[in-house]
Write a protein that binds this DNA or RNA. Structure first.
Lengths: 227, 227
DNA sequence: CGGGATATTGACTCTTATCAATGCCCGTGG
DNA sequence: CCACGGGCATTGATAAGAGTCAATATCCCG
């Protein structure tokens, strides 16, 4: 179970939450909000819902999932973040979602206050943060449309296209996350996701080299069925 | 906190009686991005998806719905905006959703560029806009959880509590929108919404004085069933 | 190689959608 | 003031899509 003894460097963490890791990026004392690099193993928690916020993060490598839970454990993943993405913004002092590494992941943590009070440059920074947040809001709205109004096949088609759009190759797709995560992102069960993969395969729009490696045989057709 | 005051000040500068709702806010005197007052009748379009953006809006009175459509007409309402709320933020030059008045509504339109370049105050304005956008993002995430993981009864219970939280009375709720809008907000059909109203009534948590006027008989119970 | 986690597939159930009929308001005009 | 009409809402019967439960199958990873 404790298979991956973690990779990492100074801020490395093991994956199991039972070992209360000091996930707070205790900066080696960064002037001017220089970022602090952190590494997380598969499924390691980056921050939890309810925890104090105060940092924003940028993905360097790996994939991060941001999710919310209902009291009975039902989970909704609101976003997957890829290298280059920033996440962890909060309007107040508490995280309203949790973030975990889907695969071994490196991020840089920036102190929120540092970004806001970084002298003259801070205005540009704030505007950039505003832009990023507005983009996130637009993406969330799009996701609302998917969750509220699309059927299972349309959801998976849209997901594959979205992931493809964020990867290098436009033909072969390497999914970092298991079926369960895809299901929780799409508001489905993992069985339904699996069945929809099978159906897309039957329809000739994809080929499954393995569960995680998908070939897009007909992106145009996929797009037409995503809405 | 300087952010709050700067924005408030700028947003509340003189309102013009620009009656004929030619949907474009042709600012009479565009100095310092003073807002332009506009009125819309029931179901009137404030802006449409795909239309050029450039203004943000603040609700003065009435209710606004923001929605997205699929090509075949399926609709998802992402938010209802009440007096005091701002909406219409876009990260680029195009609206990615449409906004309509649910009931006769007055808004004030502010030029986006004006807000960003309003001299020394603009930094506070931008920070306030960032804060508002982050709040919107958090609410969207919460809505994702509702759409992805809650059942019909939970959705309606959560909706009623949410609307109550935004109204004056905590006991009597006047819904501005018809069942169809509630359905498109909750990712359901209007029939299912109607049935869930009936079920909440049977459970003794609400009383329906009329379709639009709801008495919350047991908010605590309602809350317990909203998740 | 072997074993646990992950994924697929099948049989069946259940929630919500769909289709359809009826009822209820409310505003308008006779 | 009442009757009419149209939009809105409720209710019912049935269907369809996704969920649940359960039995393999496959893939990594050690």
């Amino acid at each position: 179970m404790l298979t991956q003894s973690a990779v990492t460097q100074s801020f490395h963490l093991h994956r199991h939450p039972s070992f209360p890791p000091s996930r707070k990026p205790v900066a080696p004392d960064s002037l001017h909000s220089a970022g602090v690099s952190m590494s997380f193993g598969r499924n390691a928690e980056i921050y939890a819902e309810g925890e104090a916020s105060g940092y924003v993060y940028k993905v360097v490598s790996g994939v991060v999932r941001v999710s919310n839970l209902l009291p009975d454990g039902r989970r909704q993943i609101s976003a997957f973040h890829m290298p280059g993405d920033m996440f962890g913004f909060e309007s107040d002092e508490v995280h309203h979602a949790s973030a975990e590494a889907v695969v071994p992941t490196k991020v840089i943590a920036y102190k929120w206050q540092g970004l806001l009070s970084a002298g003259p440059q801070s205005n540009g920074v704030v505007r950039e943060l505003l832009r990023l947040t507005m983009i996130g809001l637009r993406q969330s709205r799009e996701h609302l449309l998917l969750l509220g109004r699309k059927n299972a096949l349309e959801r998976l088609a849209a997901f594959l296209l979205d992931m493809t759009g964020r990867s290098d190759s436009k033909v072969v797709l390497d999914l970092a996350m298991p079926r369960h995560d895809i299901a929780d992102y799409l508001g489905l069960t993992l069985e339904t996701v699996s069945r929809m993969f099978a159906e897309l395969k039957d329809l000739g729009t994809i080929k499954l080299e393995s569960a995680r490696r998908v070939h897009l045989l007909d992106p145009a057709k996929l797009k037409s069925m995503s809405a």
